[in-house]
Design a protein around this nucleic acid. Sequence first.
DNA 1: GTTTTTGCAAACCATTTGCAGGGTC
DNA 2: GACCCTGCAAATGGTTTGCAAAAAC
Lengths: 143, 143
Amino acid sequence: MVTEDLVRAFDDAGFRLTGARQSVIDLILSRNGAFTTADLVDDARRRRLPAARATIFRTLEVLEQLKVVERLDLPNGSHSYIRCGSGHHHHVVCRRCARSVDLGDCGMSAVAAEVAQRTGFRIDLHRVEMFGLCPSCQTVVPT
Amino acid sequence: MVTEDLVRAFDDAGFRLTGARQSVIDLILSRNGAFTTADLVDDARRRRLPAARATIFRTLEVLEQLKVVERLDLPNGSHSYIRCGSGHHHHVVCRRCARSVDLGDCGMSAVAAEVAQRTGFRIDLHRVEMFGLCPSCQTVVPT
DNA sequence: GTTTTTGCAAACCATTTGCAGGGTC
DNA sequence: GACCCTGCAAATGGTTTGCAAAAAC
């Protein structure tokens, strides 16, 4: 059960397992791809779960530190969050349904190493995000 | 002269070549790496160039459409702009001095193609940003 | 002259914060 | 009981917008 992973990560790190936090985790698990803070706020209100806006933000912050959630910068400038395992990896996100797939390293470490070599930069961090249409959305919106 | 590139791009696209816009272009060219809107606002005030905050934002927006400036999302969540040529490419940015180097495609199209193959996604867009220390900043800040 | 652009200030919107009350260990 | 967490509402900070005056063509 995935819930447990998040819950365990939570109190292993010494955070209290409160009702509000469980609600947020629940909300996140109820979505399957990338989601925005506004999505969670709306879901919470709709499902009458106890989780104020500020708490949602604070909980996401914690989850981000725990590396079970990651924040993405969408091409249009807005932000999204996505649930994911730890370890170095990247995502491809469907621009229509927000479903996402974890890509692992997908060869980027090698690319980064080559770039470091070529430019003389010491590269500490690289970010890769890919956007497009997932298989099922391709059939719906052929463009 | 680089100024001309920006200026020409500007009126080729049917925009008026105003004093304020020339100031913004001038400000951008006076910086050599990535810069923030706040940088430009400060520079403008300091140099007494006519360019109000709103105009700076509006001009950057135009320059972005003209593909001579690109907006970057920094790892800390803030934004930066960078001057660059058109065509598909990525950057490596020094986290200390903001100097940046254009990386061209750097093998990413191939990576994207492989990911498309593997996941079934149709990939329309990918973004890559690398951060680290440029050669000269490495000598200053060894860490 | 007509149309675009500017500047200013106000509006916006997502996110953060202060603080008093409530919940958890 | 001590400390952590929550909710609310207010503050924030970057970005956008409305509008009348000014500049460009």
